[in-house]
Design a protein around this nucleic acid. Structure first.
Length: 704
DNA sequence: TTAGGGTTAG
C-alpha cells in the first residue's frame, strides 16, 4: 500500500514538470523499478511523451513483461504511426507468450488492427479478425469492433465492415459513427445519412460531436445545403458550437455549396480557428470565384502568424491561377521552398497548374521535370496545361509518354486528353481514344461521355456524338448540353432545338446557362429567329436565369444576322448590365452582312469608345466603307490602324491528311503546294457560285 | 492502458 502511494506521488510530480527520465533515475535508486505497476506506468509515460526509445529500453530490460507492458509499448508505436514496428512487436508478443498473463488481450487487438488500417494491410487485418472470432471476450468488445470497422472502411470493404457492425446487438454511438464515417469516406454519403437517421430515429441514440462532423461531411458531399443547415441548427441546440472540427466541416459545407455568405458569417463567429479553418476559407473564396478575396485572406492569415501547411499552399495557388496573378504565384513558389514543401506532390502539381494557367510554360515544364514522383494527377495537369496553351498536339504526345511511363490514366485524365484532341478536331484520333475508353471501362461515366460527345462534334462527326449520347445509361444536364451544342456547331439548328425541348421534358434535368448558350447559338447559326426569341424568353422568365454577356452576344448575333438591326440595337439598349464591347462587335458584324453604313457608323462610334485597340473592329468598318466605295473613309480607318500599331491575330484552319496536321492562315503561301491549293479554292468558289451557295463573295474572299 | 472527426492538387 505504501509503495502504491509513493508511486502515485512520484507520477503526480511528473505532471508538475519533473521529466520522465528524472523520475526513472530517481526510482532506480529506490528499487521501485521492480514493481510491475510502476514499470507499466513509467513505460506508458515514456510512450506518451514521444520518448519511445526509452520506453523500448525499459521494456527490453524487463525479463518477463506483462501484457500491460506489451500493450503500453505497442500503444506508443501506434501513437507515433510506426505501423510496421507495431505489427512486428505484436508478432514478437505472439511468439513469446506462454502464459495467460502475457497473451494478447482485448486491449492489444485494437492497437494492432489500427496499425493494419494504417498500412491498409487487409491480409494481416483479416488474420487478426480470425483470432478475434475465436475469442468471446474480444468478439463482444466494442473497442475491437470499432477498430475492425475502421480497418475495413479504410480498405473500401464496406460489406465486411457492416458484418462486424451487425454482430453487436446494441452498438454504441462510436460504432454507429464509425459506420457513418466509413460510408462517407467511401463516397456513399447517401448511405451514411440513412444510417445516421436509423441511429437517431430507430435506436433513439443521441449523436455526439464526432457523429455530427461525419454527417456534415456527408451533406457537403451530396451538395445538400438544406440538410447541412439543419444539422448546423442541431449542433447549436446541442451546445457544440465551440467544437473546432465541427465548425471546420460546416465551413467546408458552405464553401462547397456556394453559400459564401454563410461561410463568411460562420468564420467570423468561430470560437477558435486553426490552419484548417483558414485554408477552408481560402478555398471557399476560390470555389466561389473570388480569387482576389482568397489572396487577401491568405495575407491576413500570414499576418496573424498562422503557419500555412501544404493544403493552404495548394489553395492559395489555386487562387493565383484563377486570378492569373503569376507575381503572387511566384512568391508562393518561394514560400513552398522555404517551408520545405518542394517535394510534396500536390503542392508541386498546384504550382505546375498555376504556371500553366498563367501561360508560363517554361516554369511549368521546369516544375514537372523536377518532380521526383509523378502521379496520375500531375500528368493530367501537364497534359491539360499544354492544351490550354494552344499546344494540343504536344499534349497528346505527353499522354503517350505517360502511358509508356507506366502510369495508368483515370477518368479525369481521359477527359483532359479528349479536350486536347477536340482542340485539334481530328477524327482518327478521336476514334482511337474512344476505343481505349471502351476497353478501359471509362466510357460509361457521365463526364467522360459529355467530353466524348463534344469531341466527335468538333471533329464534325455528329453521327458518332449521337451514338455516344444514346449509349449513355445516365444523362445529366452537361451531357444534354453537349449534344445540343454538337448539333448547333454542325449546322443542325432544328435538331438542337428539338433536343432542347426533349430535355426540358426529362424529369430532374434543368437547363443551365450553358444549355441556353448552346441552344441559342444553334438558333443563331441556323437563323431560327422566332425559336431563339422564345427560348431566350423562357430562360429569363421560366428558368429565372439572368442572361450574361455571352447570351446577349448570341441574341444580338441572331437578330443581326436576320437583318433585324434596329431590334438588335433596341435589345442592347434594354440590357440591364453593362454592354461588353464584343456585343457591339456582333452588331457591327451584322451591319457588315446587311451593308448598313449608317448604323455601322453609330455602332462603331460607341464601340471604339469602349475598346479602341481591337484591330478586327477597324477592319470590319473599313470593309463596310469599301463595299460602298467610300475610299476616303477606308483610307482614314487604315491609317488609324497603322498609327495605333494594331495587328490582327490571324485565324487558323487545320486539316489532317493521314498522319499530318496542316495549318492554314489567311493569304498563307508557306505551304509548298499553295499554288495548287489556291487554284482548287477558286474552282470550288466558281462551283459554289453556280449552285448559288454564296451571295456575298467578297466576304468569302476576305477569309481566303 | 483501449475506439469514431475537420481543409488539398488535374
Amino acid at each position: 500500500m505504501k509503495s502504491k502511494e509513493l508511486i502515485n506521488h512520484l507520477f503526480e510530480s511528473c505532471k508538475n514538470g519533473r521529466s520522465v527520465c528524472e523520475l526513472h533515475c530517481l526510482t532506480l535508486k529506490t528499487g521501485l523499478i521492480t514493481n510491475s505497476l510502476f514499470l507499466t506506468k513509467l513505460n506508458t509515460l515514456y510512450a506518451k511523451h514521444s520518448t519511445l526509445q526509452n520506453a523500448r529500453k525499459l521494456f527490453d530490460e524487463t525479463s518477463q513483461p506483462s501484457v500491460y507492458l506489451w500493450n503500453s509499448l505497442l500503444r506508443g508505436y501506434c501513437r507515433e504511426k510506426q505501423w510496421k514496428e507495431t505489427i512486428c512487436l505484436f508478432n514478437q508478443m505472439l511468439s513469446l507468450s506462454n502464459s495467460t498473463s502475457d497473451k494478447p488481450d482485448n486491449f492489444t487487438v485494437p492497437i494492432v488492427i489500427k496499425a493494419c488500417a494504417g498500412l491498409s494491410d487487409l491480409r494481416t487485418g483479416k488474420v487478426i479478425h480470425g483470432l478475434v472470432k475465436k475469442n468471446d471476450k474480444m468478439k463482444s468488445d466494442m473497442f475491437v469492433g470499432s477498430a475492425l470497422i475502421e480497418l475495413y472502411t479504410k480498405c473500401g470493404e464496406m460489406e465486411d465492415a457492416l458484418r462486424v457492425f451487425e454482430e453487436f446487438p446494441e452498438p454504441d454511438v462510436v460504432l454507429w459513427t464509425s459506420m457513418v464515417t466509413g460510408y462517407q469516406k467511401n463516397g456513399n454519403a447517401k448511405e451514411a445519412l440513412s444510417l445516421f437517421s436509423q441511429m437517431v430515429v430507430n435506436e433513439g441514440l443521441s449523436p455526439d460531436r464526432v457523429t455530427l462532423v461525419s454527417v456534415v461531411s456527408s451533406c457537403a458531399q451530396l451538395m445538400n445545403l438544406l440538410a447541412g443547415k439543419s444539422v448546423h441548427g442541431l449542433t447549436i441546440r446541442m451546445g457544440f458550437d465551440n467544437d473546432l472540427s465541427l465548425a471546420n466541416s460546416l465551413l467546408n459545407l458552405y464553401a462547397k455549396t456556394g453559400s459564401l455568405r454563410n461561410a463568411r458569417n460562420l468564420f467570423a463567429e468561430m470560437y477558435e480557428k486553426d490552419v484548417i479553418s483558414w485554408s477552408s476559407m481560402i478555398l471557399c473564396y476560390v470555389q466561389n470565384e473570388e480569387p482576389e478575396a482568397a489572396l487577401d485572406i491568405f495575407e491576413e492569415m500570414v499576418k496573424k502568424k498562422y503557419e500555412p501547411n501544404s493544403v493552404t499552399l495548394v489553395s492559395v495557388l489555386q487562387a493565383c491561377a484563377a486570378a492569373s496573378n503569376v507575381d503572387v504565384g511566384r512568391r508562393i513558389h518561394e514560400l513552398t521552398k522555404q517551408k520545405g514543401f518542394e517535394l510534396d506532390v500536390s503542392v508541386s502539381t498546384s504550382l505546375l497548374d498555376m504556371y500553366m494557367k498563367c501561360s508560363c510554360l517554361n516554369e511549368a515544364v521546369d516544375i514537372f521535370e523536377k518532380m521526383p514522383y509523378k502521379d496520375v494527377v500531375c500528368w493530367a495537369a501537364y497534359i491539360s496545361g499544354f492544351a490550354q496553351n494552344g499546344l494540343a498536339h504536344e499534349s497528346l504526345g505527353i499522354f503517350r509518354n505517360m502511358l509508356s511511363d507506366g502510369t495508368r490514366p483515370d477518368a479525369v485524365t481521359m477527359v483532359k486528353v479528349l479536350i486536347a484532341c477536340a482542340e485539334l478536331g481530328v477524327l482518327p484520333q478521336a476514334l482511337c481514344l474512344h476505343g481505349y475508353l471502351v476497353s478501359s471501362g471509362f466510357d460509361d461515366k457521365v463526364f467522360v461521355g459529355a467530353a466524348l460527345i463534344d469531341l466527335y462534334s468538333k471533329c464534325g462527326s455528329v453521327d458518332n456524338s449521337i451514338r455516344v449520347f444514346d449509349a449513355l445509361s445516365e444523362k445529366d444536364v452537361v451531357v444534354w448540353s453537349s449534344m445540343i451544342a454538337g448539333y448547333g456547331m454542325n449546322g443542325f439548328g432544328r435538331e438542337a432545338v428539338r433536343m432542347f425541348n426533349l430535355m426540358t421534358e426529362c424529369p430532374g434535368i434543368i437547363p443551365n446557362h450553358v444549355t441556353f448558350l448552346s441552344v441559342l447559338s444553334a438558333c443563331s447559326h441556323t437563323g431560327l429567329l422566332e425559336e431563339g426569341i422564345k427560348i431566350f424568353d423562357e430562360m429569363v422568365h421560366k428558368y429565372k436565369i439572368e442572361p450574361n454577356s455571352e447570351h446577349q452576344n448570341v441574341m444580338v448575333d441572331l437578330l443581326g444576322r436576320k437583318g433585324k438591326l434596329n431590334k438588335a440595337m433596341e435589345f442592347i439598349e434594354e440590357m440591364k448590365v453593362k454592354c461588353e464591347p464584343h456585343i457591339l462587335g456582333a452588331l457591327l458584324g451584322a451591319c457588315r452582312i446587311h451593308q448598313n453604313v449608317e448604323m455601322a457608323e453609330r455602332v462603331s462610334k460607341k464601340l471604339l469608345r469602349q475598346d479602341s485597340n481591337h484591330a478586327g473592329y477597324y477592319v470590319l468598318l473599313s470593309n463596310i466603307y469599301a463595299v460602298d466605295e467610300k475610299w476616303d473613309s477606308v483610307a482614314r480607318i487604315r491609317n488609324l490602324v497603322k498609327e495605333k500599331g494594331l495587328t490582327r491575330i490571324p485565324g487558323q484552319s487545320r486539316v489532317q491528311v493521314k498522319d499530318r496536321v496542316y495549318t492554314f492562315t489567311a493569304a498563307d503561301t508557306s505551304h509548298p503546294e499553295s499554288e495548287y491549293v489556291y487554284q482548287l479554292l477558286r474552282e470550288i468558289e466558281v462551283k459554289m457560285k453556280e449552285e448559288d451557295q454564296i451571295s456575298d463573295t467578297d466576304f468569302i474572299l476576305d477569309g481566303v
